[in-house]
Design a protein around this nucleic acid. Sequence first.
DNA 1: TAGATTGTTAATCGATTAACAATC
DNA 2: TAGATTGTTAATCGATTAACAATC
Lengths: 214, 214
Amino acid sequence: MQESTRKVPKPTPERLATYLAALNDLIEREVHTIASRDIEKLTGINAAQFRKDLSYFGEFGRPGIGYDVQGLRDTIARILKVKEEQPVVLVGAGNLGTALLRYPGLMLQNFRIVAVFDNNYNKIGRRIADLEIQDIANLAEANKTHRARIGIITVPAPAAQDVANRLIDSGISAILNFAPTSLKVPSGVVVRNVDFVKELAVLAFHLSEESALS
Amino acid sequence: MQESTRKVPKPTPERLATYLAALNDLIEREVHTIASRDIEKLTGINAAQFRKDLSYFGEFGRPGIGYDVQGLRDTIARILKVKEEQPVVLVGAGNLGTALLRYPGLMLQNFRIVAVFDNNYNKIGRRIADLEIQDIANLAEANKTHRARIGIITVPAPAAQDVANRLIDSGISAILNFAPTSLKVPSGVVVRNVDFVKELAVLAFHLSEESALS
DNA sequence: TAGATTGTTAATCGATTAACAATC
DNA sequence: TAGATTGTTAATCGATTAACAATC
């Protein structure tokens, strides 16, 4: 057995999220039991890797049998802290922010955007998907009631650091940053960056050299 | 010296894209020469890492001096194949697709979305940011003229595999997939996945256990 | 020459996976 | 019992980084 949650490799939580999605599918297909080998077929992640990832958190399978699908789903949801709905605040009501607000996939995984903020007075007061855009100056006050701990930044790069500071001041300790800037945050605050353009650059790198001709 | 491009570690191209962005900033600030140690300060990436990443492609610095900012920028742009404009096609003219079409950051890094496709007859013929939404059935035909090799998928998950197949049939060999599905593609085709919800799940995992109370 | 910084070697670190005793 | 599959050990693999001779 493992002494609580020690030394979880960095890629493990992301793989857990992959397993969770696969298990949700299996539940819909009314599959009740699954072996690590089947998870490998479904996700492409090595069966030993799957078992090792789980081993950091406990023992959830039965030798010779496999895993109970529903039970494992609940376990992983608990580990990832998405068993109960996670409130999220979003700053930046532009095209991307709007797209995220309207994205149905968030709800399916128990995330709910509970408030939207912007600093543009032409936008403040408008509604997007049931939420009224609030003045960014209200952030700290508003989050006293929402108590969200996750924030999403979809503002232009030059504004991102200021927004991050405000989020942290409002009790946010996990930030999903879509601005192409690296944020400086105190320890205890986690940041994940999503950078489309960087992804495109990596893809361009992998293009073969020749095929440009013809 | 290195025998051309052999055994580049997987994380290297992504770091190259980070260096490129930093160098672009330095050019704007009219800095002419830079040492690996300064790159570390700017990007947070270890100086030895930076030098090693470059070493897979050649020797670009001068001992005792550092690197020529403009020259290194051009070199990295060439390595990433973003020296000339890269045409990109996008499939899925929903909220997210629209946001990407309007995103100014793409152009700045030499990517240009040259065509948009959808299968919804209510959308086909409309315009988003100067582009007319085309019938997905036109994809192969249209790309005979555009010759894009990179495609972006912003359709709902159940449609993503079909779209990927069509993209590949149209000569696309690099795909940026925003649908939360793992695509099956032939070897020679590269896929990068962007999954917001997975990112949020990783953030939720890192939330401290206690602070839910009060 | 003295000081600075590269490119690369070699040591370290961390993550993946094959193999297998334990267990159902 | 025989067959299947777990959880974990140990081997392998790959990536990071400190250290330093070579170079400006």
